[in-house]
Every structure is written in structure tokens, then in C-alpha cells.
Amino acid sequence: MPENPVSPVRLRPAAPSDEAALGELDRSTWSTLHAVTPRPQPPYEPFFDDRHRPEDFLVAEAENEAGEVCLAGYTRLVPPTPLACNAHVRQIQGLAVADWARGRGVARALLRAAFTAARGDGANRMTLRVLGHNAPARALYESEGFVVEGVLPGEFFLNGRYVDDVMMGRSLAP
């Protein structure tokens, strides 16, 4: 089934002023389908910190059902290591889409914006990790050119069962 695009989706780098909205989006989309950490509980940790800086995130804004422009999703894009020999790689370390915006192309738009941003930073390769049972995310990543490059079987124990950690990657060459 084709996705219904959100009209219009605005993609931009995150700003410090997005912290509250990003924290709320992160908490509202928490699920063992993608999260290996416990469900966040009050008092909530700040969304941004020394390792999660606003400049590491791309955000999507769109009109919700009430016609209000608000945060529809985000992705975090960072070098996987601080090593110079790994500087040509960027890694997606988080992608979330608000429930009201799902199935409307927001995640795909964020991925494509991440590819463009990574190329602009000189990267020629992108990687990510996804839980083996997260079929919707894996299908999206595969449709955008990612392939499975490794699997850590039973790496996480979630909801009473062992779940694989799947490593995926793709070239950013045109």
C-alpha cells in the first residue's frame, strides 16, 4: 500500500528549543519493538546531553489532525566512533515518528535527509542497528537500500524472550 505523504513536511536540524517536544515524542513512541532500555519514568532525563546534542538530530514538522504544525519525527545521525579511520561512516542511532504521522512518509523523508546530510559531511557509508523483531523498520530500511551485514543472535532479553540485534548498512555513493 503506498504511503500517504504528509503535506507539507518540513525537515530541519533540531534546535535546543525542541528539547521538550523531542522528549515527549520519544516517551510517547517508546516500545519494546525498538527500545532496549526500560520505559522512561518521571522525573524524566533531559533529551539533550553531552552525547545527544541538538546538532546530531534532524526533525520533521508537519500538520497534525488538528491542523497544528508540530514535531512529527526525528532521527539521530552521528559518527559511529571518534576514530579518524571511521570518519567516512555515519550511523543512525534513533528514529521515531509520532503515532499521528505514521504511514505518511515521515520516516522515509528523515532517512533521505540523513543520507543527504551525511554525504554533505563527506560520509560515503551509513549504518544502523535494529531489533530483529522490528519488521516494519527493517522493511523500511531495506526499501531504502540497507542490507543486513551482521546479526548478534539473542543479544537482548525483552518481554521474556531473546531478540536479535541486526546490523544493517548501505553505501551513500550516488
Rank of each mutant, 00 (worst) to 15 (best):
P153F: 15
Q41N: 11
F146A: 01
N4V: 11
E144R: 06
M126P: 12
R51F: 13
W100D: 00
P8R: 14
D26K: 11
P54N: 09
F156N: 01
F115M: 00
P13D: 04
R27Y: 14
P153N: 05
A35Q: 07
A20D: 11
L128G: 14
L110M: 04
R76E: 07
Y162P: 01
F115E: 05
G23I: 14
S31E: 07
R112G: 13
L95S: 03
A123R: 13
S7K: 02
M167E: 07
P82V: 11
Y44L: 15
N64Q: 02
L140T: 04
S28W: 00
L33S: 03
V147Q: 11
L77C: 11
V148K: 05
V106E: 01
V163R: 05
F157W: 09
C85Y: 15
L110A: 05
A96T: 00
H88E: 01
V163W: 09
A21T: 09
C70F: 05
G103K: 00
V148M: 08
R12G: 07
G145R: 08
T29L: 09
A101P: 00
Y74M: 14
P54L: 07
R104V: 02
E65S: 12
M168Y: 13
L158K: 02
A123L: 09
W100K: 00
R161A: 10
F115V: 05
L58E: 12
P42S: 05
R27D: 15
A114I: 10
E144M: 06
A66M: 01
V69F: 11
E142L: 10
V59Q: 05
P174F: 10
R12Y: 08
Q91D: 07
L152N: 06
H34T: 09
T81S: 15
H52F: 15
P79T: 13
